[in-house]
């Protein structure tokens, strides 16, 4: 889009955003370089089960004696991947659908939103399971399934903002100047959608990571012994008291990741609002 480079530059100027960009970059790097960074293989038993953190295994070991630190690092690959792709699918499709529904209203809107309501009516886990039984097991299917589950939420958010934005006088003004519909949507309506959209995206990201956990718990997502943050959490649930580190460390990573995306989303919204520029 217009001024993309400028937006990135402005974003970089904001110290909070800079911290987030660096942080997210580091997490992605960790995921990519997992084999180099991780001291052990994620599925190798290296010590007694449920050993407390020590010098050789910083985050302790799990109920099979596997290194939690290595598993967290490998788990980043799956979790980030699932989070980003699933949110990407959900947000992308939801954005387009919501835009169309909100802009045209009338029967287009009714048809689209009824379909969304039907999707929405299913409990999300159930729907994801349903979709992955159709698509088959495995990571790819899981990602698509979680993505589809997310579409209605995004569609609703976007549609509501589009309808609100359509009432704005400058949108009407743009139409009165003869700007074509597609351009009105992109130039004048989109910026109003970005704020709720980014917030929704960061929320969906954490949701996706956790849904993946629930699905792998049910044997649909990533298969053991491959780790993901979510599956580590659901495995650890039974040992919360004896080995709290099994819960604590994946949780810390999930929280940090989500926080980084959240704050970045906030800064992005500020950068895109020229009123806050001095």
């Amino acid at each position: 889009m217009r001024r993309f480079g400028q937006t990135i530059k402005d974003l970089w100027r904001d110290p909070m955003a800079r911290v987030c960009i660096v942080g997210i970059f580091l997490i992605i790097l960790t995921a990519v370089l997992a084999p180099v960074i991780a001291p052990y293989q994620p599925d190798h038993m290296i010590a007694a089960p449920k050993s407390a953190p020590a010098k050789d295994y910083l985050f302790g070991t799990d109920n099979y004696g596997r290194d939690v630190f290595s598993r967290v690092i490998y788990g980043a690959r799956v979790s980030l991947w699932v989070g980003l792709i699933a949110v990407g699918i959900g947000a992308g499709a939801g954005y387009v659908v919501g835009m169309i529904a909100g802009y045209f209203e009338g029967w287009t809107d009714t048809v689209i939103m009824r379909i969304m309501d039907i999707l929405f009516a299913f409990p999300s886990i159930l729907l994801a399971i349903l979709i992955s039984t159709v698509l088959g097991r495995g990571l790819g299917a899981t990602m698509v399934a979680i993505g589809i589950v997310n579409i209605p939420v995004f569609a609703r958010t976007v549609r509501a903002s589009v309808i609100a934005a359509k009432g704005l006088e400058y949108v009407k003004n743009a139409q009165s100047v003869g700007v074509k519909t597609v351009y009105v949507l992109i130039r004048h309506i989109s910026p109003n959608v970005i704020a709720p959209f980014t917030v929704q995206s960061t929320l969906a990201l954490s949701g996706a990571i956790l849904t993946e956990a629930a699905m792998s718990f049910l044997g649909l997502g990533i298969q053991p012994p491959d780790p993901s943050w979510g599956s580590m959490l659901s495995e650890a649930r039974a040992f919360m008291e004896q080995a709290p580190w099994m819960v604590i460390f994946p949780t810390i990573f999930i929280v940090i990741t989500i926080l980084l995306f959240n704050v970045l989303g906030d800064s992005l919204r500020d950068v895109l609002d020229p009123k806050l520029k001095l």
């Binding site: 704005l168 400058y170 003004n173 004048h188 609002d273």
Partner: peptide, 22 residues
């Protein structure tokens, strides 16, 4: 779209909100 802004154009009541702040 060809007529609007070219053959017929419009001025609005609230100048503060009729221009896109972006």
């Amino acid at each position: 779209c060809k007529i609007r802004g070219n053959e017929i154009s419009m001025i609005f009541q609230e100048p503060m909100t009729a221009l896109d702040p972006m």
